[in-house]
Computed example of a mutant assay.
Amino acid sequence: LGEESKNGNLIRKILQNYEGTFVLDADGLNQIALNHMQSDLRKSLCKVIITPHTGEAARLLGIDIAEAKAMDRGELSSCLVEKTNAVVVLKGEGTIVATPEGNSYTNTTGNPGMATGGAGDVLTGIITSLSGQGLLPEDAAKAGVYLHGLAGDLGAHHFGEFGLIAGDIAEMTALAIKKTLG
Rank of each mutant, 00 (worst) to 15 (best):
V88F: 01
A141E: 04
A143W: 10
V88G: 05
N107F: 01
G74M: 09
T116A: 14
E75D: 09
V87M: 00
I169L: 15
Y146N: 12
E4L: 07
I126M: 14
G160Q: 13
E161P: 09
L15W: 00
A119F: 07
A119V: 01
K178S: 11
A68L: 05
L175V: 10
N103A: 07
N103F: 04
G120F: 15
R12S: 10
T106Q: 04
I14H: 09
T106I: 08
L123A: 13
E171V: 05
S5H: 08
E82A: 10
V89T: 00
L60H: 03
I165A: 14
M172W: 03
E161I: 05
P52N: 12
G155Q: 02
E3G: 07
G92N: 02
M71A: 13
I65K: 13
A156P: 06
P137S: 09
S44E: 04
K179L: 11
G55E: 01
T180S: 11
Y18S: 05
L164I: 01
N30P: 04
E138G: 15
E67H: 10
R59M: 05
E4C: 06
D72E: 08
T99W: 02
T109G: 06
T99Y: 03
G163R: 14
L164V: 01
L80W: 02
E75Q: 09
L41Y: 01
I169V: 13
A86T: 03
